[in-house]
Design a protein around this nucleic acid. Sequence first.
DNA 1: CGTATCGTTGATACCTGTCAATCTTGGTGG
DNA 2: CCACCAAGATTGACAGGTATCAACGATACG
Lengths: 246, 246
Amino acid sequence: MSDSAPPEVILDHRCSNCPVRHHAICAVLDNQSSHALSDIMVHKQLVPGQPLWSDKDEAHLFAIIVSGTVKLFKMLADGRQQIVGLLFPSDCLGRAYSETQQTFAEAVTNVELCCFPRQQFEHVLTQHPELEHALLEKTLTDLDNAREWMIALGRKTASEKIASFLQQMSRRSELTRCPNHRPTPDLPTFVLPLARAEIADYLGMTMETVSRNLTKLRVDGVIRLIDGQTVEICDADRLASLAEPQ
Amino acid sequence: MSDSAPPEVILDHRCSNCPVRHHAICAVLDNQSSHALSDIMVHKQLVPGQPLWSDKDEAHLFAIIVSGTVKLFKMLADGRQQIVGLLFPSDCLGRAYSETQQTFAEAVTNVELCCFPRQQFEHVLTQHPELEHALLEKTLTDLDNAREWMIALGRKTASEKIASFLQQMSRRSELTRCPNHRPTPDLPTFVLPLARAEIADYLGMTMETVSRNLTKLRVDGVIRLIDGQTVEICDADRLASLAEPQ
DNA sequence: CGTATCGTTGATACCTGTCAATCTTGGTGG
DNA sequence: CCACCAAGATTGACAGGTATCAACGATACG
């Protein structure tokens, strides 16, 4: 370790360049306190389809998503899958205060992670109540979102599920888009991070039904499918009324 | 206020007689600290069907369930309902750190609540990190449970949902049963807190399908319906294999 | 330019929802 | 004590939405 480059400077630099520094839970830490995290941080890169862990693995990892999309999913013995969470930049990955995982986790796109050993992260949590509070707020929001999705899974029709999903993806993309990138002249456009089969696993239906309903929305002029992955919302009002009656 | 009965004694008495004192999140507080909660506590009684709040109401209440069952549910504009949470003794009721509710809440049975004004409860949370930690652990568990239920809603068949539901209720009743009440000679028995239509709203299906599948389990000898609300599990292994293939 | 992967479209079957009738249960009043 | 009634639960007939199975088309990649 050279005396001309003390670790503090390097570590602080790593966080200050972080694109999610002010959106993730670590935002509540001042530069001083953030060293507690940056000291134990390790960066990791994932390629699409790369698993993070299996559902019965020990939970060693806690991470913050810097870029890309991660899916959390569960599986039945016969292979049926259900995606139970989609994680985007600034979201937390990993179950604090549990020795075991209860879901699978897998990169959907290329992913950059800011990783911490779980137990060391928990140690930082106990020493920084403001960080634990931020994690609580995030977890409460996750629970709200999970419950919001439960009414879609249990009570919405296939077409309502698709419309809700597109709304949700559109809203997400607004948040992650650079504010100066899209002033408002043109229609909301975004890239679906999930393949058709994954959308099906998220919505609790089959790939074929997903495809048929996307086609129907396209034919009806509600959306435009630019290249199969890219969606343009032509009629947001109609999409909203399809996502929820009335 | 008389000198012979200082408020501390009265307040402490209220908590020390509480049946969920050692199971709810307040268990992490010592007798000294628990005064911060008992000072702002109000008891409340509810009858079946009594609403706690509506989904767009302001969130004024935070409470711990002392006895009974509470359902959290969402509604679509056309009346379709989905129960997104069932709360039992020692569970928390109310959304900390949010001004608004995102669900309906309603008593299913007679309910006793230990209530706190939400903002005052939050104040206690900030002054007692161990309480906030307990709430975080509880919220993380709630999130795990919500996700576990999502795969049932999205991917399980009607009969699998019913079997899963009965397993879950059976497990719950074991926890709330007095340990000396049921040594083990006879079969696990419990009372369904929910009516058929409510079970349907929990499982994302219709009352009729619930009824048909309960009948099928009865005819097949997996369960015995003692009085429509009381269920005896005759073959727990078969029930388990019906809840999840293999 | 062939091949593999993913997505779309079609035909059919089946599970579950819908609508309706009947049965059961519990409470009330004669 | 019994008849009556209302609410909840069960059962039946039928229809419709979605899954399943299969073929075809599109796209990316070597």
